[in-house]
Amino acid sequence: MNEVVRISSAEKLNSSTWVIRFKAAFDARPGQFVMVWAPGMDEIPLSLSSVGETKAVTFKVIGDDTRKLSAMSEGDRLHVRGPYGNGFDLSSRKVLLVGGGIGIAPLMPILEAKEADAVFAARDGDEVAYCVPIAEGLGRRHWVSTDDGSLGFKGNAVQLVTEVLGENVYDEIIACGPEIMLYYLHRLCVERGIRCQMSLERYMKCAAGICGSCMVDDRRVCADGPVFTGEQISELREFGKTARDASGAKKKL
């Protein structure tokens, strides 16, 4: 539940993305997350990108805390709380994973755990190239889209998924990424009648389901989620529209 772990390896995956690996006593499922802290940084929620005996968090440097985390190396210690959240339901047979940007990271344990196809979407090739050898190593069918066309399909995730659905049939789509991507992907799933699960993100404090910072409508992203089904998402009026800041005030997304 609360553990101080030693980093077993830290690796830079591209110009802005790092992976930190560590051994921990807790068991975790794909889609769960941990709260990570070391002195000098704020504690932040990070999805687990590996859930075996060696756990991993894969993150993009977007602010002071992720920058401090990226400066850590093998042997350094981290305080880890968790794992928290429900995780993905992996019972569907034929699954398409759709990851956007750093939202690819929480899908990686699924790719390891089961036969699934994957769409990796990003702004440019630098952001997403590291995923290709991983998918190839696991022997998983995959497609890449980039906004600038520097790798794979030129366009966004939803456009590529539309193409992929033209030639393939899936029981379910499992996705994580920017909410704008999830918003349009959810719409596509509803239109096509495809079941889906999506991992959402909100500002978090306790992560344990009591402080109410991460509410989307009346659901707690940290404890009722972060993974919600397509049906649940259809009920959320704030999805794709608003989120709350540290004070609880509503902000437009």
């Binding site: 539940m1 704020d42 978090m204 404090k205 344990a208 402080c211 800041d245 004070s247 509503k250």
Partner: peptide
């Protein structure tokens, strides 16, 4: 007035106890 509260970490729990220093976050 609106208050963001204290920075994370501001919460921890064990099986025996819970501790927080949210710092009265509220939207005003």
């Amino acid at each position: 007035v609106a208050k963001g509260g204290h920075a994370n970490p501001n919460f921890i729990e064990t099986g025996c106890w819970t501790m927080n220093a949210m710092g009265l976050p509220n939207p005003g």
